[in-house]
Design a binder for these strands. Structure first.
Lengths: 142, 142
DNA sequence: TTTCGTGCAAATGGTTTGCAGTGGC
DNA sequence: GCCACTGCAAACCATTTGCACGAAA
């Protein structure tokens, strides 16, 4: 998987720099979406000289080339590998981010297209709500 | 409808100030969602002394009390009347924002709940994609 | 008259950019 | 060696906040 990404970078004309490899490694290992700040913190843990703006430019470039994708939560962008087409479920209470395969929402997408002429992005949508754990935790407090 | 809002404000303990009435009037008339900056521009057209931060605080207070609701697009918040429960369809190309009654997506919501234990917000979701016009306009260019 | 709301100006915080130097290819 | 990439520092821009005054209730 990391090999795929490594290849992809070259194929897309993106240079394989230290900082980019670190970012991909982190995202592949953690298998989540992270903010630029958190990515930078994790990168600098081993490579302190890497600048924050470099991380910004890296994720921008890789997002532009489809290697990464991003969603926005509370005014900041979260980046993850764009591997398989999926949407995002973010818990408004704990911030947990889950993924749901894109085709699970294809029926809803079809409905919107026929009823409204609107074609939603086939992946990368952000849906806000409550995760299972927080729903249970809030049962009494509601 | 504006009378309802007027009443609601009092009931909720929100003072009916000039700036708030102007904001509600604009949103009711235009029947769309507007950015704070645009709201401020329209308010100051007739009342130049109203400060931008007042508009910020107004929409914040009214959103908090359920009179308004907001969605975020390209790093800025758009506010609209929270009248009927609906979701949002925003065109990534032209920025046009359409509304879709909340119950049209209830099936998808049920699916997410059973399959992922995740309960999405029953209204106010933002779905990104292409509106009918832009789909047609882009037919040749894709 | 008691809060709540407002104007003003300054601060905040995530993100972007200009520029000169560095390192992939 | 060329040009994309990087570090640094400053700029940006939507939004927030502290404070003293003004106005709904």
């Amino acid at each position: 998987m990391k090999e795929d990404l490594y290849e992809a970078m070259g194929r897309l004309g993106l240079r394989r720099t230290v900082s980019r490899m670190l970012i991909l490694g982190i995202l592949a290992e953690k298998d989540t979406h992270l903010s630029v700040l958190r990515l930078h913190q994790m990168v600098t843990a081993s490579h302190p000289m890497v600048n924050l703006s470099t991380v910004y430019r890296n994720v921008a470039a890789m997002t532009e080339h489809g290697v990464l994708h991003s969603v926005e939560h509370t005014g900041q962008a979260l980046f993850g590998l764009a591997a398989t087409p999926h949407h995002h479920l973010i818990c408004e209470r704990c911030g947990r981010l889950d993924e749901v395969p894109a085709d699970e929402l294809s029926q809803a997408a079809a409905l919107l297209l026929t009823a409204h002429g609107f074609e939603i992005e086939p992946a990368g949508q952000l849906l806000r709500g409550r995760c299972r754990r927080c729903r249970h935790a809030a049962n009494g407090a509601r």
